[in-house]
Design a binder for these strands. Structure first.
Lengths: 124, 124
DNA sequence: CGTAGTCGGAACGGCGGGATTCGAACCCGC
DNA sequence: GCGGGTTCGAATCCCGCCGTTCCGACTACG
């Protein structure tokens, strides 16, 4: 397993498009609508997405595409909840006693997910 | 104060319009969209709203006009009111029906975990 | 170099969510 | 049984949200 594939810190818009299943122009449009979504840009002006950005995009996607919020409604949700979602779930489900515990748990979980993703990619 | 005003069991569409602040044609439109909203009718075919109907209308109004749901989104909310918090959340957010669904969920989770790990690494 | 990727901005488009209009039926006081 | 107000369903119209397409220009990279 090539570990570096999963350690990436930055993603281009085409990579994010593939990961999230959203067209590039939708990503740009949402960026124009959600001030929270504000990926950095390199010297050429190209977007550089972080994992945090991708996580936020997934959250917006859930609100707009699955739960049926308007853009305006999704803004309100994001603004008031300050982005917990999965975070709250994990924090409440896992007895976290130190940040090292949590980090260890996440690392293990990620390795598990990497394995699953690899298998699924092979099938797809 | 005329007590009977508050003991009323049935209301006409014009009364409901005044009470809820919604136009009559909106009430008829919503009725066509939400199967749950189904006021009885008298022999003449005129709508006869109960207090329950009015309560539901207020609920829809809150979802659509204040919280920013689409009609479709509001339907989902109303339809799944039976379930409980977290369990419902998980089931609706992760409706795994195929390996593609699972892969998508894992991709999303991985981005989220990557973000968390980055943060923790920075702090540690 | 060539070509693949990305950029922003403007013009375009579908359609969801009403809004308006219509003729007809009904209700009520007189 | 007449006139004025209310309601009806269906048809039609309409605006803005949410993309979508198109564009020429710039850049990265093999």
């Amino acid at each position: 397993m090539k570990d570096f594939e999963f350690k990436k810190l930055y993603y281009s818009i085409s990579e994010v498009s593939r990961i999230t299943g959203l067209e590039q122009h939708v990503l740009r449009y949402w960026e124009s609508q959600f001030s929270e979504l504000n990926p950095a840009k390199n010297r050429a002006g190209n977007r550089i997405y972080t994992n945090r950005d991708i996580s936020l995009i997934f959250e917006i996607k859930r609100l707009v595409r699955e739960q049926g919020f308007t853009i305006e409604g999704a803004k309100k949700v994001l603004g008031s909840k300050a982005g917990d979602g999965l975070a709250q779930l994990i924090e409440t489900e896992v007895a976290v006693e130190s940040s090292d515990d949590l980090k260890q748990f996440l690392l293990e979980t990620r390795a598990f997910l990497n394995d699953l993703i690899e298998k699924l990619s092979g099938k797809a």
